[in-house]
Design a protein around this nucleic acid. Structure first.
Lengths: 253, 253
DNA sequence: ATACACCTTTACGCAGCGTGAAGGTCAAAC
DNA sequence: GTTTGACCTTCACGCTGCGTAAAGGTGTAT
């Protein structure tokens, strides 16, 4: 089967301009041109275009795609790994931003006040690193190692009140599970309350909450003997029950 | 507090060129200029820039951002909440993209079989989406959910071999900690090996590994009685020792 | 022969800056 | 007092991945 630009464009769902551009930059040349200069594409080009569009969907630049599909020696997996790193970086940044927005919200509600610096924390990953390198030394000299550790680790900054809150939350989770288990329904109100309390509890430890991770932890509660033993002390089967409740709570099946 | 371009740029993690461009297009004008034409930004401009960058991160065009934040009805608190939702959604999309990239990688490595046909089909689905944008959204949501389900299935569908591997890993972690503690050095080779084994172990449970989360878990090992009791059975102080080793391993101080 | 849908190349435009160039300013150091 | 060096200023062109004319040639059905 042979295609003209428009035909192939229709088939692939791109514009004819795109195909001409791909010809221009040498990423996809037509099989041949007819007597009057029309671009004629064949089966190979169709396949190649599919590859191109596939990588494009993944957000790979045309330059990179060219390298991937033209040089057989070029390892596509390697290129993709690099690309993945970039994406992960982006997600990290996004996570920071989300925390930041949440902070801003609570700041707007008057609970905490944010410094100018804090306001931008999500946007400037590099800057943070640089700052820590710069100021880290000074602070270390001034206040000693212990303080540095404390100031750096968010988790270690837990105040007494927070620590008490965590302990209390932990107890509440346990007692709520106990009550919920009497209903026997992990989707019930009490069980869901327990799952919510549990979420609140882990957010004290986790810098970023995600449903996936929460559900993952729930799985671990059953899979891992330490957790299982701990929760089953509340009542046999409590680990499974909590897992089921969290799974429902997080909507992760 | 007043800032020059570079100062504000550093604070916000953008380039000074960006600030000049924002001035040029009228989206963020300096509070005033000094006698020699230097741009001077004040508190209001800092806040405004923060808003701009929030929206920018969402992929909103600067033109739109301008409209949004100059609109008199603009409610910052409301906007932020909406904002967070969108950020979360964006992260979801990003996660999807990452999963797809990872799929492709492992496909390229021949671990899973993703035939050309499948690739083509996946692409065809996309084309259908594009053709019918209304239904496309629904499909995208479905596709997203499926992927999430599948990634969850990873945890659920652990094979026997994997389960054995996990158990074995767990034991290895414990014994390695025991040995490492005799050296007394959490930065030493053995302790770092333990931290690495520990990482391998948790990656069986976590869909995504991050140094931050790993360090966070390490903190929990000390803060949470359950973990502490478990590890201290190996040897008193083992929880703290493991935490320190992991902190060093992850470089999270 | 005429219409009309297709094709060609050339070339400017877009967003959101990066990256010079060419020059002025400020604080500190000599 | 001037020299250094880090700032600042305003042009202005370059980049990606095309969209969108403009100006013209081609294919084929009527």
């Amino acid at each position: 089967m042979e295609y003209t630009v428009q035909k192939l464009a229709q088939l692939a769902g791109v514009s004819s301009r795109t195909l001409r551009y791909y010809d221009e930059i040498g990423i996809l040349k037509p099989a041949r041109t007819n007597s009057s200069g029309y671009r004629i594409y064949g089966q190979q080009e169709v396949d190649r275009l599919q590859q191109i569009l596939f990588y494009r969907e993944l957000g790979v630049s045309l330059d990179q795609i060219k390298e991937i599909i033209t040089a057989p020696a070029f390892d596509a997996a390697d290129a993709l790994r690099e690309h993945r790193e970039k994406l992960l970086e982006k997600r990290k940044q996004l996570d920071l931003l989300i925390t930041n927005v949440e902070k801003t919200i609570s700041s707007a509600e008057g609970r905490t006040t944010m410094s100018d610096k804090e306001k931008f924390e999500g946007f400037k990953k590099k800057m943070i690193e640089d700052n820590e390198k710069q100021y880290g030394k000074e602070i270390r000299e001034k206040y000693g190692e212990e303080t540095v550790e404390k100031s750096n680790a968010k988790l270690m900054n837990m105040t007494r009140e927070e620590h008490e809150a965590v302990t209390k939350l932990s107890e509440e989770v346990n007692s709520t599970i106990g009550q919920a288990m009497e209903t026997g329904n992990p989707a019930g109100e009490l069980a869901q309350k327990a799952a919510d309390l549990h979420k609140q509890w882990i957010t004290y430890y986790w810098s970023e909450y995600s449903k996936e991770a929460h559900a993952g932890l729930a799985e671990m509660y059953v899979a891992d003997e330490r957790f299982k033993a701990y929760y089953d002390k509340i009542r046999p089967g409590a680990a499974e029950f909590l897992r089921d409740a969290i799974k429902i709570y997080t909507g992760q099946q």
